[in-house]
């Protein structure tokens, strides 16, 4: 079963486009990263999934249920952390968690206390006087405390210090091991790349691509320099699979390799190798290399 499925999901705000024809599938039990620059339509998509706004056209299903018609049944099983989180300023952190827990019909307070401890949240101060990072912690505890089947987290790591970020990743990973699903938006791939199973990128309201992190890593581009003991013939490397931007100057070869290095290494093995230097590119760069030029650019998996 799919945790989230949208079909041609489209939202216009007046004449301004929110999102256009978004077809999205999030599998049960995975951590899905929803990536895109600010204003690309991430929050619009998420608020459509939660029935806070209604689509201009298209359709959304959450946990196999209709996002609008079955909203209550969905909300019993889903937790949501808004992107620009606002809580009740006059309540303390503890009161906020108590109130939101009650709206869910009561939660396991032992688990809540554990979350508060792990995120090092001081729940006794008022939301109004909390720093942005502490408010975000309250939001995270509120989202996790009911052990929902699906966590929809809009920019969950914004404002968090590195320690809390790490603890958040552990929590999301624990949820995954319990078979629960997380849908996490971010405008920074590095913040979520080691956490997510798959990522989708949205830009200017269109979903450009969905890839598994593993596939992206296979596509990893590496700058490579090989130094040989004596000059090598360029033709020996020209047709090696995955090799691009090949340059051979006497005994020095430089190129970019996409994916596996195996073929190139085997080709080089016919000569005496003095040294190899490589430089990895980040997934962010890969994504931008593939999809960076916007919706008009050719893309493999959109």
């Amino acid at each position: 079963m799919l945790a989230i499925r949208t079909e041609q999901l489209t939202k216009y705000y007046g004449k301004a486009r929110g999102i256009l024809d978004v077809d999205l599938e999030v599998r049960t039990g995975e951590i899905f990263g929803f990536l895109g620059p600010n204003g690309a339509g991430k929050s619009t998509t998420i608020r459509l999934l939660l029935d806070l706004i209604r689509p201009t056209s298209g359709h959304a299903e959450v946990l196999g249920l209709d996002a609008h018609r079955d909203r209550l049944a969905i909300d019993r099983r889903v937790a949501y952390l808004p992107g620009d989180l606002s809580l009740y300023g006059d309540l303390t952190g503890a009161q906020t968690l108590h109130y939101l827990g009650n709206l869910r019909g009561g939660v396991d307070t032992t688990y809540r206390d554990e979350l508060v401890r792990r995120l090092e949240l001081d729940p006794s101060s008022r939301i109004r006087s909390m720093s942005r990072g502490n408010r975000q912690k309250v939001g995270l505890v509120a989202a996790f405390q009911g052990r929902p089947e699906l966590l929809v987290l809009d920019e969950p790591t914004s404002g968090l210090d590195p320690f809390v970020q790490l603890e958040f990743e552990r929590l999301a990973d624990e949820a995954r091991r319990e078979g629960r699903t997380s849908f996490i938006s971010s405008h920074m791939l590095p913040e979520v790349e080691h956490l997510c199973d798959r990522v989708g990128i949205i830009r200017e309201g269109r979903l450009l691509a969905v890839e598994s992190i593993a596939t992206l890593k296979e596509r990893a581009l590496r700058r490579l320099e090989i130094e040989f003991a004596s000059p090598v013939p360029p033709d020996a490397f020209r047709d090696v699979p995955g090799v691009r931007d090949l340059r051979v100057d006497d005994a020095r070869l430089s190129c970019t390799v996409m994916g596996s290095l195996d073929a190139l290494v085997k080709a080089a093995a016919g000569f005496e190798v003095r040294g190899i230097r490589t430089q990895d590119t980040s997934l962010e760069e890969i994504f931008l290399a593939y999809y960076g030029a916007g919706p008009e650019a050719p893309h493999a998996a959109a």
Partner: peptide, 14 residues
Amino acid sequence: SRGTIDVLLSYPVP
């Protein structure tokens, strides 16, 4: 206007 409606209506209350 305070922005709390998003949180409130993500809970199972019609």
